[in-house]
Design a protein around this nucleic acid. Structure first.
Lengths: 342, 342
DNA sequence: TATAAATATGGAACCGGTTCCATTTTATTG
DNA sequence: CAATAAAATGGAACCGGTTCCATATTTATA
C-alpha cells in the first residue's frame, strides 16, 4: 500500500557511485566532478528521487522549511488582516505555514515550550502575546529565531504598533468634536493571558483625557471578551448610565459593530446621539462608514515574516534585537460628529 | 548553543534497562512489568526526556500529529468562517494545523504532489478545490487520508454544500418579490483553477429562472475575481446597461458589499431601486442588514476535521467514501424588496 | 619519469527512535 | 524439584539521510 520511494542508496547504485557522492550532488557541494555530477543527476531524474525531509532533519537538524505563527483567536478580523500580509510574504518563498492557535494561558505555555523542542519550524512569529524572560531564554537555548508582532521584548526583534498614539488619536478626535463623556470599551485589560495592545490604547486614551483636562471616569471604561456580542451588552450598559457617554471608543472594529448594533436597537442615531470610533479598519469598515483608527495589519504581517526570514537566512541567532514601530492613522468617516447640544 | 536533549539511550542507562524496554514504556506496550515501567518513568521524569518526533517519523513513519488544510485565498471571509470551525474542532485535539494557501493552478498541482510524499501531515482537508483522478490515485498510493469540503470526488469523503439549492433559494426569493431582471455576479466560472461552488450556484440560478419562465440574459451574468473592488466595477457595468437589472444576486457577501458600495456611489437606494442578495452570511452581514444565502461555514469546517480525524484514527484508507450534504438557508434582511413600479 | 600536491570518492558511523528475535527470567505443572 | 510454558528483556539492524576521514585518482612539478 505504501508507495515505492527511492533512497539515496538506489541513486548511488544506479549511478555507480557512493552514497557520499550522491549527498554531495544533492547538496551542491563543489567537491564533485562535473562528469560525476551529471551521472548522478541523470539517475535522480530517472528514479524521480526526492530526498526525505524527515531523514534530513534527523541527521543534521536540517531545515523544516516551515514557519510557525502563534496567535490568539486567529480568526478574528484583525488577525486575519495580519495573516493576509503573512501569506502574501510567504507566497513566493519555499516556506509552509504552520498555525498555532491559542485560547488559554495553558495553551500558550505549552506551545512556547513544545515548539522550540520539536524543531518542526525554522522560526516563529508571535502575534500579540508576550513571552516571559524564561520563554525567551528557552527560545535562545534551542536557537529558535523569533519575531514579535504587536508585542515587545527587549531581547527579541519586534514589530510594534504605536497603540498609545492610536489611543491618543481616537480620543483627541472625539475631544476636538466637543465630546467630554467618552467611553472606552476594550478587551479585558488585566486578563493574565496578556494582550498588551489594549493596555497601550487605554494608556493613550487616559493620557489624552488628562492632557485636555477631562476627568477619567471609571464607569466609562468597560471590558469584555473580544466578541461582537460582548460589545453589544457593554454598550447597552453604558447607555443605561444616569449620565451616559456621548461617544464610545472601542479597541476593535468588531466591538464597534457590536456597539452600533446596540445603539440601533436602542433607537439612537449615530453620530447625532452617540459617536463611535473603532480600531483596525477591517474590510467592511468603509462600507458601514465607520470612523476608526487604522492600523497597518497587512504591513505588520509582511514585516514580521520578512524580518524572520532574514534572521533565519543570516543564521543570526546572535543578532541584536531590533524594534520597528509602525504608525497608526485615524480614518474619519461617518460614525463621529459633535455631541448632542443639551 | 544547541540545547542538551536526552535520548532514549540516556534513559535506558539511567534506568538500567535496554533501549527496547524504554521504547515499550513510552509506547505503552503491555510487554513490560509494572516494576520496570515505574523505574523507566522515573528516569524519564528526572531527565525531562521527550521523544524526538523526527526520529519517530523516520523509523516507522510515525504520525506527525498535524493536519493539513489546502484552501485557495484562505483569508477571504468565507474561508475564515470555515477556518473557525476547523480550529474549534482541533482545539481539544493533539493536532497542529498546517495551512497551505493556493493562488494558482501550478501551486495546487505542486502541493497535491508534494504533500503526500513529504508525510508532514497525517491527513488533509481540501477546501473547494477539485482533485483530479490522478491526484486521488496519488493520495491513495501514499495512504494519505483526504476529506473534501465544498468539493466532491467519487473516491473521497466529501462535505458538500447544497449550492444548487442556494442558487435556487436566492433567485426564487427575488422572483417571489416580483423581480424579473435578476443579475448574477460571480467568480470566474470557467477559470481552470476550478472553483465548483459558483458553477453550482449559477446552475441553481438558471434552473430557477427557467422554472419560473424567466429568460436567462447573458448580459446579466457578470464574472470577476473574488475581490470587493471587482464587484464594485461589475455592479457599475450592470447599472449602465440600457435595461439595468432590478436586483443583483452575488455569490459572496464580499461581492455583495462591493455592489452595495457601487449602488451607494450611484445614488441608488437599496432595496427601493435595486435589491441585493449575498451568499455566505459572514459576521457583518447582520449589521448591514444584508439578505444572504447563509451557508454553514463553521459547521462544514467542523465536519471536515472531525470526519478526517475519524478516518485517521480508524486507519481506514480502505473505507468507502461518503458524502455529507449540508443545507443552505436564505436569511431575508433589508437589502431585498419589490422592484420599482415603473 | 617519478614524486608531491591537489582533488575526488567511498562508505562506516552517526542522528534518535522502533522492532523483532534470541535470550533470560518468572510462573506453572507434573 | 525439574521440566515446560509464558512473560519480560536486551540490543542489533533498520529507517534515509549527512559527514568526515582513509583511500584512490588526477594533476602539477622537478
Amino acid at each position: 500500500m505504501v508507495a515505492k520511494t527511492y533512497t539515496i542508496r538506489d541513486v548511488a547504485e544506479k549511478a555507480d557511485v557512493g552514497v557520499g557522492t550522491v549527498s554531495r550532488v544533492i547538496n551542491n557541494s563543489p567537491l564533485v566532478s562535473e562528469k560525476t555530477r551529471e551521472k548522478v543527476l541523470a539517475a535522480i531524474e530517472e528514479l524521480d528521487y526526492h530526498p526525505s525531509p524527515i531523514a534530513r532533519r534527523l541527521s543534521t537538524g536540517g531545515r523544516s522549511q516551515a514557519i510557525g505563527i502563534i496567535a490568539p483567536f486567529f480568526t478574528r478580523p484583525a488577525y486575519v488582516g495580519r495573516l493576509r500580509g503573512i501569506e502574501t510574504a510567504l507566497l513566493e518563498s519555499q516556506y509552509d505555514l504552520i498555525l498555532y492557535n491559542v485560547e488559554t494561558p495553558e495553551q500558550r505555555d505549552d506551545l512556547f515550550k513544545r515548539i522550540p523542542r520539536e524543531r518542526r519550524v525554522d522560526g516563529l512569529v508571535i502575534i500579540t502575546l508576550h513571552p516571559t524572560d524564561e520563554d525567551v531564554r528557552l527560545f535562545k537555548q534551542y536557537g529558535m529565531p523569533v519575531v514579535l508582532v504587536d508585542s515587545k521584548h527587549s531581547e527579541l526583534t519586534s514589530i510594534i504598533i504605536d497603540d498609545i498614539d492610536g489611543g491618543r488619536q481616537g480620543t483627541q478626535h472625539l475631544i476636538d468634536l466637543g465630546h467630554r463623556k467618552i467611553a472606552f470599551l476594550s478587551d479585558y485589560i488585566d486578563y493574565p493571558f496578556g494582550f498588551g495592545a489594549s493596555q497601550q490604547r487605554l494608556k493613550g486614551y487616559r493620557q489624552t483625557l488628562e492632557r485636555n483636562n477631562v476627568v477619567f471616569k471609571e464607569q466609562y471604561h468597560r471590558q469584555g471578551d473580544h466578541s461582537k456580542a460582548a460589545a453589544y451588552r457593554l454598550a447597552q450598559e453604558l447607555m443605561a448610565l444616569s449620565e451616559p457617554p456621548t461617544s464610545i471608543f472601542t479597541t476593535s472594529d468588531t466591538h464597534a459593530i457590536g456597539c452600533l448594533e446596540a445603539l440601533q436597537a436602542l433607537g439612537l442615531q449615530v453620530p447625532e446621539d452617540v459617536s463611535v470610533v473603532g480600531y483596525d479598519d477591517i474590510e467592511v469598515s468603509a462600507y458601514i462608514g465607520l470612523t476608526t483608527v487604522s492600523q497597518p495589519l497587512f504591513q505588520s504581517g509582511v514585516d514580521g515574516i520578512t524580518t524572520l526570514m532574514e534572521i533565519i537566512d543570516n543564521g543570526s541567532d546572535e543578532a541584536p534585537s531590533r524594534s520597528i514601530t509602525l504608525p497608526v492613522n485615524l480614518v474619519v468617516r461617518e460614525t463621529t460628529g459633535p455631541p448632542p447640544s443639551n
